[in-house]
């Protein structure tokens, strides 16, 4: 079975996470669950990868974290929300991907 290339996807973990945060603030496990379901279970993000991405993006000011209680009431979790800088970065990454995809696509032969 062919699996997803971690080298390629690595550059777009940030984009994927930011995209999900566009809908509203979220926390670690919820994000990883959404990635799994939206990718049709083809991409399962590792916890360490996810945390590294959050940490990196927070340092760069793309996301901001805050403590909040679960909607269902109960556990306190670290939530992340996207910042304006994050939105801008997301748009840039989207354009970058379009270009990348367009270029790579030209070299993909289907038969």
């Amino acid at each position: 079975m062919i699996t997803i290339s971690s080298d390629v996807i690595r550059g777009y973990n940030d984009t994927i996470i930011l995209c999900l945060l566009l809908d509203g603030p979220s926390y670690g496990y919820e994000i990883s669950k959404k990635i799994k379901s939206l990718s049709g279970e083809k991409y399962i993000i590792k916890e360490t990868t996810l945390y590294s991405a959050f940490n990196r993006m927070e340092k760069n000011g793309y996301v901001a974290s805050f403590q909040n209680e679960d909607i269902l009431g109960g556990k306190r979790r670290t939530y992340y929300r996207i910042t304006d800088k994050g939105r801008q970065y997301y748009r840039e990454k989207c354009e970058e991907w379009m270009l990348t995809k367009e270029v790579v696509e030209r070299f993909i032969k289907r038969d």
Binding site: G28, E47, L50, Y51
Partner: peptide, 9 residues
């Protein structure tokens, strides 16, 4: 944080 994610999962 990682503990929290593991626990949720």
């Amino acid at each position: 944080e990682l503990g929290q994610m593991m626990e949720d999962k």
